[in-house]
Amino acid sequence: MLGDRLKRLRLEKKLTQEELGKKINVTKVSISGYENGNRTPDTETLQKLADFFNVTTDYLLGRTDDPNPPGNDNEELGTLARINQLIKEYGIEQMGFFDIEKWKHLTEDEIREIIQHFEWVAHKAAQKNKSPGKDTE
């Protein structure tokens, strides 16, 4: 069951075994082994796969046919999971995005551009969160 589901999820994202392996720090041979049933991922790797594909480990293991956690209606957690997924998909954690040393060399124009982007995102979020008829201070 794990192999079939893993392969289907990987193909849905149009990833090769090697690309998926790089994203979760295992080899192509390991991914191939998981998919063909010759290997079983350890608990940590299984969790990485579930996080990457935004499904439960129970879904990957075939214990449920529902890929989404039951009762996970918490929009905030869903948003954080989506952001985490995007960080992984775009390889931001591997680019040293949060490495202060890499930010030291930005030009003033680059910093202004980042600030403008953050302000735009915050503005859009504030607009979305405003309720009709609510007083704004």
Rank of each mutant, 00 (worst) to 15 (best):
P70M: 03
D66G: 04
L49P: 02
T107K: 06
D99L: 01
T45K: 15
Q47C: 07
M95P: 01
A125Q: 12
L49K: 09
H105D: 10
S30P: 02
F52N: 00
Y90L: 13
L86W: 03
T56M: 01
N68W: 03
I87E: 01
E18Y: 05
Y90N: 15
K23T: 12
W120A: 15
T40G: 05
G21T: 11
G96S: 12
R112V: 07
H123V: 10
P41Q: 02
G91P: 00
I92V: 04
T40R: 04
K102W: 01
Q94K: 12
G78M: 02
T45H: 06
A50C: 08
R63Q: 09
Q127S: 11
N54A: 02
D65R: 06
G78N: 02
K102N: 01
T56N: 06
G78F: 01
N54L: 05
Q127D: 12
I100C: 05
K22V: 11
A126S: 12
Q17E: 08
A122E: 13
E75H: 01
I115Y: 09
Q94F: 03
F98R: 15
G78R: 13
Q47I: 10
P67N: 00
E108L: 06
G33M: 07
G91E: 06
V121E: 13
T64S: 01
S32G: 10
N36R: 13
K23P: 06
K124N: 07
L11A: 03
E108H: 11
Y90T: 15
Q17D: 09
M95E: 12
V26E: 14
D58I: 08
N38R: 03
E76Y: 00
G33K: 04
Q85V: 08
P69V: 10
L86F: 05
V26W: 03
L11E: 12
P67S: 05
P70N: 00
F52L: 08
I83Y: 06
G21K: 10
E108T: 13
E35K: 07
T107Y: 00
I100S: 09
N72A: 12
D73H: 04
E110Y: 11
N54W: 02
E110P: 04
G37D: 04
T45Q: 14
G21N: 09
K88P: 00
T57D: 06
K22R: 09
P69T: 12
V55E: 06
G33E: 14
N68R: 02
Q17H: 04
D73L: 10
P41L: 07
